[in-house]
Write a protein that binds this DNA or RNA. Sequence first.
RNA 1: GCCUGAGUGGUGGAAUUGGUAGACACAAGGGACUUAAAAUCCCUUGGGGCAUGUCCCCGUGACGGUUCGAGUCCGUCCUCAGGCACCA
Length: 825
Amino acid sequence: MEKKYNPEVIEKKWQDYWEQEKLFKVEIDTTKEKYYLLEMFPYPSGRIHMGHVRNYCIGDVVARFKMMTGLNVLHPMGWDAFGMPAENAAIKNHSHPAIWTINNINEMRRQLKRMGLSYDWDREIATCHPDYYKWEQWLFIRMLENGLVYRKKSIVNYCKPCATVLANEQVEAGCCWRCGEPVVQREQDGWFFRITKYADELLDWCDRLTGWPERVLTMQRNWIGRSEGAKILFKQENSDQSIEVFTTRPDTLYGATFMSLAPEHPLCLSLSKGTSQETPVQEFVNHALTQDWQSRVGESVGKEGVFTGAYCINPLTSRRMPIYCANFVLYEYGTGAVMAVPAHDQRDFEFAKKYGLDIIIVVQPTDHVLSAETMTEAYVGPGNLINSGEFDGTDNESAKKAISKKLKSMNQGGPTTNYRLRDWGVSRQRYWGAPIPVIHCAKCGPVPVPDLELPVVLPIDIEFPESGRSPLPDLDWWVNTHCPKCGSDARRETDTMDTFVESSWYFDRYTCPRYDNGLLDPVQDRYWSPVDQYIGGIEHAILHLLYSRFFTKALRDLGIKKESEPFRNLLTQGMVIKDGAKMSKSKGNVVDPEDLINKYGADTVRLFCLFAAPPERDLEWTSEGVDGAQRFLNRIWNLVLEYKDLKSSDQILMESADSRTIRRVTHKTIKKVTEDISNRFRFNTAIAAIMEMSNELSKVSCEEIYAKNDLKAAMKDAIESLVLLMSPFVPHISEELWEALGNKGGLTRRLWPTYNSEMILEDSLTIVAQVNGKKRAEIRVPTSATEDEMKQSAIAEANVQKFIEGRVIRKIVVVSGKLVNIVVS
RNA sequence: GCCUGAGUGGUGGAAUUGGUAGACACAAGGGACUUAAAAUCCCUUGGGGCAUGUCCCCGUGACGGUUCGAGUCCGUCCUCAGGCACCA
């Protein structure tokens, strides 16, 4: 053993050893309990950042700990390798997305290996590999066959110069993020996953995901946004057509005085056609549709609208209700049409005031009286119905049900449920993604590519255009094909899939990454699924985690999987920040993990990441803290150096108090560290306990230890336990120290130390003596002391006497092992 | 606006079921070793008081409440962070 801790040498040594011994390679072992641990796989952006480091350090502690407790641990890693940054980089560097991606993967794999993470690298997957997306295409077709995928026209953000659809987050202040030209709304065909079919199930299962943070579940519940209400049909005047609306307030139907349609609603134009309102409506609609989203629905935007010239009929009052087109009505939510009740809805109130429309109060609160003439805002609270015919006097909650029921009996609507969740549009007019496996035939329409022709390989050998426009539509040799059904000339779908599709099932593929007879090997899936612990950033709380849940249910219904939920437990780690802000290039506060590894070694970096904050919280990066972590590892190194030659084989005549103290510290620490890792993921307190133990052991004199057999034995056990306890956090130095103690390498094959409760017991303990709840003394009592004895020693204490003297003792509260509280008047 | 979290020393954080507030670190100050520095080791370190103690008072965002006892439970409010946001 070297005199000085030299991470550079030992980290390389043990990483090589782990790789040669294939220490982290796993296979099904039915004699062992399985544990599937997964961290969110990275996008191969080029270099790992501190967020990755933190995420993967946390995962590695859990993985190594679970291995040591005897579980069969699956701990894989891979690459979320499709996506736009590859295209941008290719444009910038006159390169190719594939080359850029592969180089990045190689670089990042090398960096991750330097962290000493316990991955089974044989299971590595990259989602841009045809062997991976082949099964995604296969699944797409199965979903298409089962009605879970469909094609529809929808309104999208479109950039003309770039000839592509933009995601909402790629539109900056109404302009394209790349070319700066204004984005327009455009109706376009695209493929959709029918996630709304699972809205109820996704929502209901939120209550059963007991291993997920409540915060994430709340966000998902809000996103799904189930609301109970009614659909109501309003007959159009002079027509047998009806307009359907959704409302959560059917109780206010008697107060509905007009109707509002979203500008996208086709009725806006058709109703006004041929009337004097035709031109104003056309202008209004055109204006609304060409506006960017912010200036149309933004917070500060007022209510605007225009009369369509048409009327509909309130089914209960037979009132003639003018139909308006209004900017605040969302086409995507509900039916894109709303009944307006100005007295009881703030938006309708503002709109009615502006355009001079009638306000009728139908819900009267019990504590004050509303009047339509004087009210300055809508009343949305509870109350009893008025102006509502047969429902007058009913409380409005019961009226919701009663009126829904009546509408149903009239065939004019009825109770219904509506969701905020919309179907998931996955078409992207981009190159670097998985091709959608469909062929468009003029006669047969869209036809799935036959299974035998899968995968539809993304053409790689191409010139990547500088415009950013996808080269696929121009690749005649690739696009032109024949219809699988009728054989006539046809064109391939040139859209690729949203990259969230790949990450919605990658965790399944890790169980059988090279399986070629199907998407999943049922034997592997049954053994490994579901993921027992998933770890990643909170930023994926909705999209990725919701999509993955949807895919799991879809795979189940297609008979491919048994499980209904992908991730049994979820840990969301906080961000890494520096100087109070998230690390970013623009702020100039980025710390490069590899520089740190070069300077300190991976163990120090790991230790700091795990010690400075609990996983869910943000981690403030400080270089002083890293220095501190390094100092601790040096101290441990020196401590082990002192005791590495201890032999415990000498005969022990009697255990002394000193050796019992060493054993007590050891067993207490084993208990604390075990519980902190397994129950709570509180690595910071686990490490603090290890530090306390090492401080204790450093206090005793080395000569004394070597002088007595019982101390030698106790210390040897203590040092060995210490190294084992440290090993999930700082594996390299632990292996080296373990070897120096005369053992063989491969600590994850060792058993995690266990504690003996009897060893933790002390002969006497310190308890607190309080008077009226204030601490007045600390007293030592024998562990075996009875309540009475504890009371007596508390009362006998001089400082306690001072406070009870001359007062009457009303009551004495005894908490065994903790305190005695004497209550005096 | 609505929904979630979170507010504890100079800093990161600890206190697991209502029972010693500040574990463990970082920073700072003092000391030892050294010709010197670095490294290392030791001591002090929430605020205040004096009678300098096994002392007293105050102290976990604010104010109330429950309790023998509250950082922890309840109520009202304040601040910060995140999510959603004209969702009918």
